[in-house]
Design a protein around this nucleic acid. Structure first.
Lengths: 269, 269
DNA sequence: TTGAAAGCGCTACCAC
DNA sequence: GTGGTAGCGCTTTCAA
């Protein structure tokens, strides 16, 4: 008797329509096969009483919540927005909603948090790049159905969504090459970054295929300020195009270049 | 018997500890006041059996889900990301999670969708700028507790979060003025846009306070391409700084300026 | 202090 | 075809 009061329940509808709750349930779920007249009466009652089934009660009875969890280390990371938007849209098409959680608060609490949130949902989409493989493996059982983002694990049988940085930067470089650029700058990110290494590989592949090109490596970092600071070096390197470690660096770089440009403009007038 | 099987329940723990479910419940929720030894025995059993209360069952019994809904017209809109991230973080601090929904799919289904999702949650944060005021008013009762984003309603008593575009661009212009700029460009957005009008107002306020300044209005749009196209005009207007309708326009503008800059650079060498 | 039992609202099995 | 009813797992009165 602690629940939110005043909600019309299936029993109310049953009473109003002069049938059993079971029948109302069947009608509401389209599993009804009997006198059409009965179904109509039930629907009329439901409409009259403005009845809507309780998702909570259904979830408990069905053992199915129609919700999928989305757990990432940082919801503010722009990279996740389109993933979330896509997930939400796709899930909605199948009658599912998305429950989000940010694991940043408690980095080493990621496991328990994932398990907890998974219990409220039917499946989980998890991004936990730093979680030790053993831990992930141990948890995988309780997390299934599970989808991994930006990581895979040899011991965890789960589909994964990952960015092919190597192929990505290769394609970018090839595109610039097609545009006539033969001298590129790569404004690289953190040396220890796995994704940076992948991008460097991609550029090596590119150079192997295009011996007529050269790539000047210019140190930066992972943030927009790093990009801004690298602008001068890029300008002075004499390249005709530049690739950046990530979007933030690129934004900073573009900004830095605009600066250099207006300086240039003031000079040339 | 249709629920996900194999989960250890409160009854299992009660049996294992030799107490009643009621006692286990009290211990698990810190409402227990009796033999400490009993409490310890219960906790030991819970640990042994790896028991974790079912959030679903608690929700049904308590009439409280510990979840708040976040409904917006377009999850892919960058403006919502930080709102969501902030909401999630703040909610988490109070033991709440966030259930998201994108109402873009069915624009005129916004109302029912909000009500439906609200039933799964304890409160709702809603962004429905286009919803007729009467509809919102009619729904408000079922939606409470409710927080509105980017809109208020005279008939709906709900806190709201809205951007003060007028004050925002005023502050930006004042900042540039303080930096010494006296001649600014405003790369404006859609004429019919409410937020654009607000920004124009802000600039008028600014000019009133700073008669020594001038603002050149340059037409653009709401996307990055619009910004890029406006770059040349900005460059030629002779201003020393530019303000853009929104981030996308700004990004395009910066990109366009960088282009003009490198052209300039090639020329000047 | 502790337990029995009645909900919370819905589903699904098993009879009639 | 339809209804009775026992769950789903937890909380909380009420009584002992």
């Amino acid at each position: 008797m602690t629940a939110q009061r005043g909600n019309v329940t299936i029993a109310d509808v049953a009473r109003h329509a002069g049938v059993s709750p079971a029948t109302v349930s069947r009608v509401m779920n389209g599993r009804f096969s009997g006198e059409p007249e009965v179904a109509e009466r039930v629907q009329a009652s439901a409409r009259t009483l403005a009845y809507a089934p309780s998702p909570l009660a259904r979830s408990l009875a069905l053992g199915r919540t129609q919700v999928v969890a989305f757990v990432v280390p940082d919801l503010a990371n722009p990279a996740f927005q389109s993933v979330l938007a896509g997930l939400s849209k796709t899930a909605a098409a199948d009658g599912y909603r998305v429950l989000v959680a940010d694991s940043a608060e408690s980095p080493d609490d990621e496991g328990p948090l994932s398990v907890e949130i998974r219990r409220r949902t039917d499946a989980i989409v998890l991004c936990a790049p730093r979680m030790p493989d053993e831990q992930l493996t141990a948890l995988a059982g309780q997390l299934q159905p599970l989808v991994l983002i930006n990581r895979t694990s040899p011991t965890v049988p789960a589909p994964s969504l990952a960015i092919d940085y190597r192929a990505g930067i290769f394609a970018l470089a090839a595109h610039l090459h097609a545009l006539g650029h033969r001298s590129l700058a790569y404004v690289y990110g953190p040396e220890r970054s796995m994704s940076n290494a992948r991008r460097e590989q991609g550029l090596e592949d590119f150079l192997r295929e295009h011996p007529d090109s050269r790539v000047v490596r210019i140190a930066a970092g992972a943030g927009s300020e790093d990009g801004r600071r690298a602008a001068a070096a890029v300008f002075d390197s004499g390249v005709s195009a530049a690739l950046a470690f990530n979007d933030l660096v690129a934004v900073g770089l573009v900004g830095g270049c605009a600066n250099s440009a207006s300086a240039c403009r003031r000079t040339s007038r």
